[in-house]
Structure formats: structure tokens, C-alpha cells
Design a protein around this nucleic acid. Structure first.
Lengths: 234, 234
DNA sequence: GAGTGGTCTAGACCACGAT
DNA sequence: TCGTGGTCTAGACCACTCT
């Protein structure tokens, strides 16, 4: 209807999607035979369309009864950047670059980035604030080969948005989280006391099968609680 | 072959699965027409079988070339229990019950468990060790209605295994993680110093759409680093 | 009994990749 | 040119639910 060129199963799929988007969970979707009539296609074609929506988690089939809008599934946390995370909390995210330069990768960073020691990496150290108050210090190390001209382009507000623009938005990450107390230097930057509780967060972020970012952050524990959703429920 | 009763697409699917299990990523799977011949079924039946394995992430189709064993996908962390987590680290998990009784839910616990204040909950406090050394103190609150006779049955070694036996294995959880310093009481139990860094971990665990467990744990930061995998990569 | 989704057949034509 | 997966047809029978 809308697209003469579109594949039939795509047409049916998008028609059903538009029908049920916004509908309450449990609402009935059109029956398969009804869609066969409406689009004048074979039932297998309709099933192909519906299968996609079922896999997506939008629809749920109940044999003998029909097809219905599925209850939204609880899913694992999406990978978010600091900027997005603060926005979600209703806080204004700001960053102050303390350091941004080309360095030779040390042994730890090289291993984490799948590079050889001495390879060029970009080291970017920022003091990050939320609503104007220090929240964390982040040291990010980036694989320079993947993002040529990054330093010259001027530092972006959001690292993940900048990576996204290069088609390297991280989609998977391995994080480690531990508790510690602030060193004197950290306490100074974070405007807190030496010995105050801090959360240390390390991340190894992957995009397109390549490790693009390795970072170490230290958060003021009095300002930051990490939230994680794990697993998946039908 | 193996099962006369089995549906044809299941037979084909399991045959292909057995063929490619253990095969290196990139190895070719049988072509669809080859399977049509072998099983004497229609091509749509073979496609149904292969579709399932593709959705599962086991196979990958490349138009014009064939179907191949997919590279293992990076997925988000599974929901694990303390016992499983320590096993994964090669440590011996032990628990010492400090308290296990029926209580009336306070406001916080009631809200977290979707109950009304004053409803019966099971409060289970344990000192957990790893290789004999204190690792954390955990206070778990369980919805008694979902697990009648739990206290009388004798406390199990693993809470999650006990829930699993009742068909209530948590599949999804909402965790919060923050850093703090140990109180005097905590330090005593954990055999560390008052003011030492600790990781506070709260969990709200869901099984079958019902909140079954709410817990608060405090880990010795010198012994415990949390690992989390986020997102998903094709 | 009427309607639903689940399974299955025996073909067909297409675009694409390899040779 | 040949083999591959992608799409599509026009039927069929089944088990199940609802009324």
C-alpha cells in the first residue's frame, strides 16, 4: 500500500506494527487469515511477517486463541554513556578536559585494547560534573587507528556520540566495579575528603567486534549509585 | 531418526545442531536443498528449522553463499547467585546463617516485594565466605506466599537452587551498586577494619513476573570486584 | 462448529556469489 | 552457468479454544 517496491512480508509486518504500536498488552492483533484476505497474500507470507514481530517481542502467539500484543519484556541494561546516564537521572552532564593527547600504550592499556605495547593511543582525562558538582574522574584510552584525526577534530561533548558518528557506537562492554577510598589527588578534584568512599568503574567497550574504548573512572560514592538490570524475562 | 514422534522441523533442527555443535565459526552448514533431500521434506520445513538456529545465534545466513556457523555473540551477563559466582571464580562458597525467621515487612521491603506493609516475609541473614574468608553479609527478604514451608524445610545451601526447585528461578534482576565504608558491626563480621571500603549491593530479583527476592549485601572491597557484561553484539 | 495458530507440501522465480 | 539463500503461492490437516 504505502510502498509499491516493498516486499510483501515487510508490508504486512509494518502494517501490523503500526496497528499495535501503542496498543495495550493483551490487545488482539489481526488474525493471520484476516491479513491473508486484506493483502491478498499466502498465509506463509503473513506468518513470516508475524514471526519477525514475535521474535522482536512485540507480539505473542497463543495457539487456538490468536495473536496478541505482548507484555513488554524486562531486558538487560543497554550500554549507556555518562552523558546519557546523567540525562536519564535528570542531571546536567558537563565535562572538563584535564588532558587529551596521543600516548604510547602501556602494557595494561595495550592488552585491553588488543594492541601492542607502544602503539599509539589517545588518552583523554576528564572531570565530569552533574548539575555542576563533581561526579567522577574518567581516564579513557582510545584506539587511534580506529578514529584517525580524533584529537584534531576538537574534543566532542559525548564520546559515544562521536564514536557513533564514525559507525563505532559501542554495543557491548565488559565492566568491573569495585569500592575504594579516594586518594588525595582524587579527593582534590572531586571536592571531597581523602579517604571518602569512591566507586571505581572500569570499562572495555566493543563496537563492530573491535575494542574501541578502555576507561577507568572514579565516582564519588555519596553522589553515585550504579543501576544494572540483568537477565531477560519473557 | 532419533524420535519417530518428533516434528519434522525439530528433527531437522536438532540434526543440524548436532552437526555444527563444536564446529568452528565460519564452517558451512548443510545447504537447505541438501537437507530437503536428506529428510524428504519441503524446503519451507527446512527453513523453519534453520530460522530457529539463526535466531538462536548459532547459524548465520549469507545470501548467494550458504549458511555458516556464526561467531559466538557477546551477550549480557546472566543472572547468577553468590554460589555460582564464587564457583566461576574458582572459590569455595560457604554460608553461615545468622538469622532466618518470619517477619512483618517494613515499608521498604514491602514496596520492593510488591507487598503491603506488615505482610509476612522471610528474613534470611547470612555471613558468606569464599575459601573460608569472609566475603559479604547478605540480608535476603523473600515473599513467603510464593514459597510456603520454606523455613520449615531447612535452609538450603543455595537460595537460587531452592527457588529453582519451586519453579521460581530468578531470570531478571534490578541491582544497585554503591561504595561505602564498613560500620563497626560489619567490620566485626567481615573480619576487617571499621572504615574499610565496602561495596553495597542491592538486588530485586524477578521470577515468572513476580518479585521473589529482595536483598542487600555488603562486600569487602579488598576481596570482591564485580564484573558485568552489558549490551549484545551480533 | 467455527476460528485460531502450528505444521507441512511441492512447487516457483529472484538476486547474488563463485567459477 | 550453477548453487545459494530470499521470497512467495495455494492449498492441506492438526490440535486447540471459545461459545
Amino acid at each position: 500500500m504505502t510502498e509499491g517496491r516493498a516486499l510483501k512480508h515487510v508490508q504486512v509486518r509494518e502494517y501490523v506494527r503500526s496497528l499495535v504500536s501503542g496498543a495495550a498488552p493483551g490487545s488482539p492483533a489481526p488474525s493471520e487469515r484476516e491479513l491473508v484476505q486484506r493483502f491478498g497474500v499466502a498465509r506463509m507470507t503473513v506468518r513470516q511477517a508475524m514471526d519477525a514481530l514475535v521474535v522482536e517481542g512485540l507480539l505473542e502467539r497463543i495457539p487456538g486463541r490468536g495473536t496478541f500484543v505482548a507484555r513488554p519484556r524486562r531486558v538487560a541494561s543497554r550500554l549507556t554513556s555518562y552523558t546519557e546516564e546523567m540525562q536519564r537521572r535528570g542531571l546536567l552532564a558537563e565535562s572538563q578536559t584535564l588532558l587529551a593527547r596521543r600516548e604510547q600504550a602501556g602494557p595494561g592499556v595495550a592488552r585491553a585494547l588488543n594492541l601492542t605495547e607502544g602503539d599509539a593511543v589517545i588518552h583523554w582525562r576528564r572531570l565530569r560534573r552533574a548539575d555542576g558538582i563533581p561526579m567522577c574522574i574518567e581516564d579513557a584510552y582510545l584506539n587511534e587507528i580506529l578514529i584517525p584525526g580524533f584529537l584534531q577534530a576538537g574534543m566532542p561533548t559525548s564520546l559515544y556520540e562521536a564514536l557513533d558518528a564514525r559507525g563505532l557506537r559501542p554495543t557491548w562492554a565488559e565492566d568491573s566495579i569495585t569500592a575504594d577510598v579516594a586518594t588525595e589527588e582524587e579527593a582534590g578534584l572531586l571536592e571531597t575528603e581523602t579517604g571518602a568512599a569512591v566507586l571505581r568503574h572500569s570499562r572495555r567497550a566493543v563496537a563492530e567486534e573491535k575494542v574501541v574504548e578502555v576507561s577507568r573512572s572514579v565516582y564519588r560514592a555519596d553522589r553515585f549509585t550504579m543501576w544494572v538490570q540483568l537477565g531477560e524475562e519473557g
